[in-house]
Every structure is written in structure tokens, then in C-alpha cells.
């Protein structure tokens, strides 16, 4: 039986990526455009939130991706440590900017949504604060990749940062939870928490179907982007190697 690790061979990965990419891109575009149009034009307004409920089709998928992309980077970093195949490290590198953008989308749409609903762009709700911290982690990770010249060293150090960062990210999540309860135990946060936290529970079937389509769309978009960006990184690495060889001869 063929193991999935055979695709860790860069040439095989590139071939697979080249065949898959058009299809995944097509599916991503269909799901995204379909889901967003369905959600934007053909769903009713929420009785309490009015038309702002339409923001959910961007906000929830982006937030899900923001967390899951970091998780994917964690898995890729672990794989890099265990199997030492460059493709894992490169995939993690390629994923980070996508995760950062997703975090920005989640924060931005959340702020825009919060303004009419809570009367403020920003509250120091645990969920919001955690996302801000997650964004800082993405920035630090990307900056470390950019700063180190030796590719092998960069792979190792960013993988270590990703592992340590994951532990601290989880720790921060709990710390932030604790801190906010400690600071304001009151109606405003309870209300904010109820709106920010329990949206999924209140989403009825009318909203759920296009929402799932959008989540699928964001997921497929991520797959398409990661295939493309990892191939880009492989090509860059190969070009650098070729250039080094030319200089040697």
C-alpha cells in the first residue's frame, strides 16, 4: 500500500499538486462564491440582529481557519522534527501568512459586527483577546522565517517556536479567560459572551446550510493556497540550490 509519506518527495508532491490544484481551486471558488451569494442574497434577516447576521458567513469560517491553520502548522512542525522532510517545514512556512490573513478577517469582521450589536468596535472579551494574541504569534513566526538566512536553521528554529508558541497560546487562552472573569464579572460581558460565543447554537437551519458551504469554501481555499504556496517554496529552494551549484562550478 502506498504511504502518504511518498508525497514528501518534492517532485512527487509537485506533480500531485499540479494535477490537484485546478480542481481544488475550482471547488473552492464554487463553494465560496455559491455560499456567499446564497448567504448574502437568499437568507432572511435575523429577528434580533437584522441584516448583520450575514457577516457570519465570513466571520465564523475565517475564525475556524485561523485556529486550524495554526494547528496544521503545529502538526507540520512535529512532522518536520520526526521525519526531517523539507516539505513539512515548507508547508508550515507557506501556511503562516494564510493564517495571519484569516485572523485579520475574523478580527475585522468581528469588530465591524460588534459596532452595531454591542455598541463598540472592541471589547476585551476572552475570545477576542485570544485572537489578538494568536495574531501576534503568527507575526512572530513569519518574522522569524524572514530573519534567518540558512534554510535548515530557519526550519528548525521556526518549528521550535511553533511548538513552544502552541503551548503558550493554549496557556494564554486560559489566562485570558481567568483575567476577564476577574476584571468584569457583569452584564456587559455576559451579553457580549452570549453573542460572541453562542452564535452557532442559535444558528437555525436557514443560516446553517450556506454557513457550512462557506466553511467548506474557506477550507478548500486554504488547501488550494497551501498547495500553490508550498510549490512556490520548493521552486525557490531549488532555484537557490541551482544558483549555488552554478557559482561553485
Amino acid at each position: 500500500m502506498a504511504s502518504i509519506w511518498q508525497y514528501a518527495n518534492p517532485a512527487k508532491f509537485m506533480r500531485l499538486s499540479d494535477t490537484l490544484l485546478p480542481w481544488v481551486s475550482l471547488a473552492a471558488a464554487l463553494c465560496l462564491v455559491g455560499g456567499l451569494i446564497w448567504g448574502f442574497f437568499f437568507t432572511p434577516d435575523d429577528f434580533r440582529q437584522g441584516s448583520t447576521v450575514k457577516i457570519i458567513y465570513l466571520h465564523v469560517p475565517a475564525a475556524l481557519m485561523a485556529i486550524n491553520i495554526w494547528f496544521m502548522m503545529l502538526v507540520a512542525s512535529l512532522a518536520w522534527f520526526i521525519r526531517r522532510q523539507h516539505i513539512s517545514a515548507l508547508a508550515a512556512k507557506a501556511a503562516a501568512p494564510i493564517g495571519a490573513v484569516m485572523t485579520v478577517i475574523a478580527l475585522l469582521t468581528g469588530a465591524i459586527w460588534g459596532e452595531p450589536m454591542w455598541g463598540t468596535w472592541w471589547v476585551w472579551d476572552p475570545r477576542l483577546t485570544s485572537f489578538l494574541i494568536l495574531f501576534l504569534f503568527y507575526l512572530g513566526y513569519i518574522a522569524l522565517w524572514e530573519a534567518i538566512e540558512n534554510p535548515e536553521t530557519a526550519s528548525d528554529l521556526t518549528a521550535i517556536l511553533c511548538l513552544v508558541g502552541s503551548v503558550f497560546a493554549v496557556l494564554s487562552r486560559y489566562a485570558v479567560n481567568f483575567w476577564n472573569q476577574g476584571l468584569h464579572q457583569g452584564a456587559s460581558v455576559m451579553r457580549a459572551g452570549a453573542i460572541a460565543g453562542d452564535t452557532e447554537e442559535r444558528v437555525s437551519n436557514v443560516f446553517a446550510a450556506p454557513l457550512f458551504m462557506c466553511i467548506a469554501g474557506f477550507g478548500l481555499l486554504f488547501v488550494a493556497l497551501i498547495l500553490m504556496r508550498t510549490s512556490t517554496e520548493i521552486r525557490k529552494r531549488r532555484a537557490a540550490a541551482l544558483m549555488a551549484r552554478e557559482r561553485m562550478s
Partner: peptide
């Protein structure tokens, strides 16, 4: 309208 459109636009 402004809220929803700006959220979609920015994203």
C-alpha cells in the same frame, strides 16, 4: 447596510 457591506468588502 454599511456594516454588512464593509465587512464583505474588507474580507
Amino acid at each position: 447596510a454599511g456594516t454588512v457591506l464593509s465587512a464583505y468588502g474588507a474580507s
